[in-house]
């Protein structure tokens, strides 16, 4: 059970060593920087140091209690992240698949709209633009009714 915020790149497979020992089901999600049709060069991610780490751990615990997870792992990067590199990952472990899937889905919906991260696109043409939040992200979160 752990939450991490770091600027360094990570290997999703290496993160799963020793994860969820004894579980019957493990679900993992990895978010990767898209090239947006060849226009993007990198993402730059800003966060709220202190609050981010605490909230990630709080929501990991909340997911564990709600879905009966035996283990969970959240890792989110900040700083400059090149196209093709992993931005973040979530892993959940449970006795059966449904809890693991739902726990990961819940954590992702929450991370999208409530974790204090902000993305900025660094484009190949040199322009820079903040990524706007999607209305759909709020709808996704509302499905769990405890936002």
């Amino acid at each position: 059970m752990s939450a991490h915020v770091q600027s360094a790149p990570f290997d999703p497979a290496a993160q799963l060593r020793d994860f969820g020992r004894g579980a019957g089901a493990i679900v993992t999600f990895t978010g990767i920087v898209r090239d947006e049709g060849g226009t993007l060069s990198a993402l730059e991610i800003e966060h709220y140091p202190g609050m981010t780490e605490r909230l990630l751990a709080e929501y990991g615990e909340r997911a564990a209690n709600r879905f009966g997870l035996s283990d969970w792992h959240i890792l989110h990067r900040h700083g400059t992240i090149a196209v093709g590199e992993p931005i973040m990952m979530v892993a959940t472990a449970a006795r059966h698949r449904r809890a693991a899937f739902e726990g990961a889905d819940y954590l992702m919906d929450w991370l999208k709209s409530r974790a204090p991260f902000w993305k900025r696109e660094i484009r190949r043409d040199g322009s820079v633009a903040w990524v706007a939040a999607r209305d759909g992200d709020e709808d996704d979160l509302a499905r769990w009714q405890d936002a």
């Binding site: 709220y48 973040m88 999208k112 709209s113 204090p116 991260f117 902000w118 706007a132 939040a133």
Partner: peptide
């Protein structure tokens, strides 16, 4: 107290 735009993590 902190002010910010809607979050865009994940």
């Amino acid at each position: 107290l902190a002010f910010f735009p809607p979050m865009t993590g994940g």
